[in-house]
Amino acid sequence: MSEPSTETQAANKASAPPPAAHDPGHAHDDHGHGAHDPIHAANPHLAHHFDTPQQQFDAGKLGIWLFLLTEVLFFAGLFCAYTVYRSMHPEVFVYAHYFLDTKLGAVNTCVLLISSLTAAWAVRNAQLAEKKMLMINIVITIACAFTFMGVKYVEYSHKYHDGLLPGHNFQPKEQIWELATFRNKHPEAAEYAEKLAKLDEKKHEAPGAAAAKAEAHEEKVERPTEEELEPLIAAGLVGPRSLDPSAHISRPRMAHVFFGIYFFMTGLHGFHVLIGIGIWVWMLLKAAKGQFGPTYFGPIDFTALYWHLVDLIWIYLFPLLYLIH
């Protein structure tokens, strides 16, 4: 075992000088990897396995872009679930989006965009060795990230209290026609849906002997025709393709799946924001030590690239979840 390894080492040593002879433009080869190497001596942040700061920076940049590629594919699975479910049940998305607060979503979008600016600005600060501005920009970025998570906390706790959770936990406390967002947009449909729901309720409540009478009375009002449901169809509450319209009035079947998708997509995104906060704090500590300058700003650049990707994903999540027409 030891024989081949010593042979390889010998081979490496033997082969080290020739590249220097072939390629005189590169100054590193003939100087080996010792502590006396002038380039490494001049650049304390240049790792020993890199020859120049440029090589180190380019390698790191390639690495972070490869990571971002895997991140896009990571989120692609959730975007795929969204696409399939929305194409199958457009009425579920129309129904559910009335429960989301567009204002909070828009505020969060702006907060993330501003933090993206400060992240890009921080890269410039690092390149120009502007230590104070670099730290200020990192602190603003972190503050924006906390604002984003704060708004998300408000949204999540609101949904928790209103029973807007995935799966069996989906027990909405408010009906769609009780929501101001829906009433303002489709007053006629809201009234109609409420009336139909009340008839349904009476039918279920009527017990024993009274039931027969009540049922006979309501049999005519039940099972509205496609034309009668026009306002609800116009509001997108009942899908035109729906085979059993009356069953969908109070809420579409499987509406809970929307909240499954919503919590998974925003949750995974929020998790990325939390990780981003951690990395930015680490970068702040490094910046406080004055480590960054024209030949060493890679870590700030790569953190900013990650941060921009988190912003990119939110740029798509916002219209897809909050701005459904």
């Binding site: 490869l66 590629l69 896009v72 594919l73 692609a76 900013a304 690239l305 921009h308 990119l312």
Partner: peptide, 29 residues
């Protein structure tokens, strides 16, 4: 997204290979 990629993420001035990598992920998506 294009504005963020091209300017904030420096893709306009970056090595073209990095842009190709990222566009590959979009293509796969």
């Amino acid at each position: 997204a294009a504005l963020v990629c091209v300017f904030f993420m420096h893709l306009l001035w970056d090595k073209k290979f990095n842009a190709i990598l990222f566009l590959t992920s979009v293509l796969l998506l």
